[in-house]
Simulated assay, not measured.
Amino acid sequence: MLRDALRGLTVVDFTQIAAGPTCTMLLADMGARVIKVEAPEGDLGRSLGPAWVGEDSALYHGFNRGKQGLCLDLKQPAALAVAQRLVTEADVLIESMRPGVMARLGLGYETVAALNPALVYCSISAYGQQGPYADRAGVDGILQADSGLMSLIGIPGAPPCKVQAPVVDVVTGYMACMAILAKLQARHRDGLGGHLDVSLMNSALALQQSSISSYLRDGELPTPIGSAAPYSAPNEAFQTADGWLMVAAYNGNRWERLCGVLGHPEWTDDPRFISSAQRVAHRAEMQEALTAVFRTESCAHWLERLRAADILCARVADYRDLLNHPQIAENGMFASITHPRHGLLRVPGFPVNSAEAAEQPYLPAPDKGEHSRELLAEMGFSEREMADMLESGAVIAA
């Protein structure tokens, strides 16, 4: 099963909030042992709510399932010794501090690679490890703005909008996971690890492959157009009598069938609507004509008729709809986690072979320092050494 494909792999996780934790969550979902190292103040993601699970945010629990928790004050030499011993035996280290911070802590790539040449070391940052912006911090919304992504979102004349879901963070986590798996495959050949540089900026640009490709070709700046696609029409949401319906009927056959379903076969011969390119050029007129018909009936009415004609469509759903979505239920994408203190938690599950993955239970996110004592003992520290580190605060246990 995919859920145990990475069994035997040890990952040390020095990340917080969303991008890095997405990557390490995926690795844990595929069977890797992930040791989450937190500072005494904990992962900042613990404080980002609502909603809450006890004293921590639901966001933290959503991104950190299946990991072990170790809490270290890396400003203390004893804690640095623990971290260095930990990474010496690890396969992967992933960190999301500003470039240079890990080196100042004594855990920079050159230092760690000397201890463990086979280590795959992945750095996640806002802009990359080199260059004029390397020392700048950045979060999802900042990179949605700085990458141009925000300029695509919203409706004409409205204030700038962002995607509420942290899409740049999440896709950066997926990029990092992909890069780590590729580097591990290369390590099978040469036995060596290496340093991976993954940035929110590059990931945000990758999200815009189609729009940027078009701009680089014709120099035309894209502008917000609501739910529509700039390269095809109709490929947008239309208001019905009781909600909104997304319709994609931009190729020739589906456009003809849509015109028939709407009772206006003459639109197929209208010069304004004769091709997808013409419909894009006359989008406002097309939208006005189609909306006038769509508003006469309910979403359910149109869904039945459009699907019968093999026209791509979907009701614009909210999260309440997702809980009753039969395909999401079939796919097993809402995972259940039994937390020892907070009971049953539900989070989005592993997205590949998700129904199969749901058969294996997910472990909860760790409390801060939950496994500190266990991990110290496993690394060979004596009871006296552990007591001293816990007393000094170099290591913190739940």
Rank of each mutant, 00 (worst) to 15 (best):
T24W: 15
E356N: 07
S276E: 13
A137N: 09
P222I: 00
D197E: 06
V11E: 03
F63T: 00
S354G: 07
L80C: 05
D242V: 11
C161H: 13
A137G: 15
I311R: 01
N251L: 14
Q185H: 13
M97Y: 15
L344M: 11
L345I: 07
A19D: 06
L184K: 07
F334R: 14
Q84F: 15
D146G: 01
K368F: 12
E288D: 08
A126I: 00
A281V: 08
R346D: 05
V347S: 08
V170R: 02
R33I: 04
A79C: 05
L74G: 04
G393Y: 14
G226P: 11
N253W: 11
A83V: 13
A58P: 08
V170Y: 12
L376A: 04
H264R: 15
G369T: 10
M386V: 12
G219I: 01
R305Y: 14
L149A: 02
A329E: 02
N253R: 15
M150K: 02
P366E: 12
I155L: 05
T268G: 00
G131Y: 09
L258Y: 10
G393I: 14
M30G: 06
L152R: 05
T338F: 06
A78W: 09
M379S: 04
N353D: 12
Q164D: 08
A308V: 11
M97I: 06
G31L: 05
L115V: 02
V198Y: 08
Y250H: 12
D367S: 07
R315Y: 05
Q360F: 13
S354R: 09
E370H: 03
E330H: 15
V316F: 10
R295L: 03
L306A: 02
A114G: 06
Y127D: 03
G31S: 07
N324F: 04
K67I: 04
S382N: 05
V395E: 01
C23S: 14
Q360Y: 12
D269Y: 08
A137D: 13
L258M: 13
A176C: 09
L149S: 00
R3H: 14
P156E: 00
A137K: 10
D321E: 01
A357I: 01
E95N: 05
D4G: 05
D197C: 03
V168S: 01
T223S: 07
A398D: 09
G128C: 03
P132A: 05
A39R: 15
A281H: 08
S47E: 13
N324A: 15
G157R: 03
V352H: 03
A58I: 06
E288G: 15
E374K: 13
W244R: 13
H339I: 01
G49K: 08
L27S: 10
